[in-house]
């Protein structure tokens, strides 16, 4: 009994240690004073207002959203196609290709980032937004692929064969049968890709062209100058986006999957 109490206490301490800083950032973002110290002097949304008026941050948000959305769409489309090929067809070199596409998860991000950068150097290509996008697609694709593949394996061939036998051609069969049945995984994949892209910093630092900032790199740049309470507000926004979005998405996906059963 007491053994369990100790373990429980220890667990609470460990989680507290991990989440306390996050909680403090969120709390301080509502602080009315310029200086982050406890007890807080008052509650205000002042720093969120400042955020809104900071052009650099708004621009960074725009870049991040654009990048995240494009990454999510590109990765999901590619992920669906790759999953179809890997699950539904047999071709030479299948297992090698499958491993290669999952590999970006296994390789440390810095290594991947440097490798892609060196590759671009070697090709004599300047950094650009499309290349940044390419980088993000490379390391979000495995997540999408794994999620979509897992679901596709569970969709029996029978459904597609029945549709074909009823006169739908393979493309019509994909859009009327396979894709709707795949939808929960597609949604989960989109959200995964978006969030991973949205809060990525390592790869982005290496790949972003000069003058372009995403939200994480913008925070990083701001931290180098001074620690402004604005950063707390920005952190809170980021936490909400990257935690709430996937949670909502997963709940939705689960609801959809239950309906398709």
């Amino acid at each position: 009994m007491s053994g369990w109490s100790i373990i429980r206490l220890f667990t609470i301490v460990v989680y507290g240690f991990m989440f306390l800083p996050v909680a403090i950032v969120v709390l301080l973002s509502f602080n009315s004073s310029q200086f982050g110290s406890f007890p807080m002097e008052g509650v205000s949304l002042r720093w969120f207002g400042e955020l809104w008026n900071n052009d650099a941050i708004i621009r960074a948000f725009r870049v991040s959203f654009m990048l995240g959305a494009l990454t999510a769409i590109t990765s999901t489309v590619l992920g669906i196609l790759a999953a179809l090929a890997l699950v539904r067809y047999r071709f030479p070199g299948k297992s090698v290709i499958s491993t290669l596409m999952i590999a970006p998860i296994l390789v440390p991000e810095v290594v991947l980032a440097v490798a892609l950068l060196l590759f671009l150097r070697w090709l004599d290509m300047p950094k650009s937004f499309p290349l940044l996008l390419l980088g993000h697609v490379i390391f979000t694709l495995p997540f999408v692929l794994l999620v979509v593949q897992a679901r596709l394996v569970g969709i029996r061939r029978d459904y597609e064969e029945a549709a074909l036998s009823l006169g739908a051609n393979p493309v019509q069969t994909f859009f009327t049968i396979t894709l709707p049945l795949l939808m929960p995984a597609v949604l989960a994949g989109l959200l995964f890709a978006f969030t991973i892209s949205f809060d990525d910093i390592t790869g982005t630092m290496f790949w972003k062209p000069g003058g372009v900032e995403t939200v994480p790199t913008q925070i990083f740049a701001m931290l180098r100058n001074s620690i402004s309470p604005e950063i707390n507000a920005l952190g809170t926004v980021m936490i909400v986006l990257t935690v709430a979005l996937p949670l909502i998405g997963m709940a939705l996906a689960r609801r959809m999957a239950a309906r398709l059963r």
Binding site: R156, D158, Y159, E161, A162, A163, S165, P180, L181
Partner: peptide, 12 residues
């Protein structure tokens, strides 16, 4: 017309 052992009705 094709009928399968597991019915294969479209669940959605």
């Amino acid at each position: 017309g094709l009928v399968f052992q597991n019915y294969a009705l479209f669940p959605h």
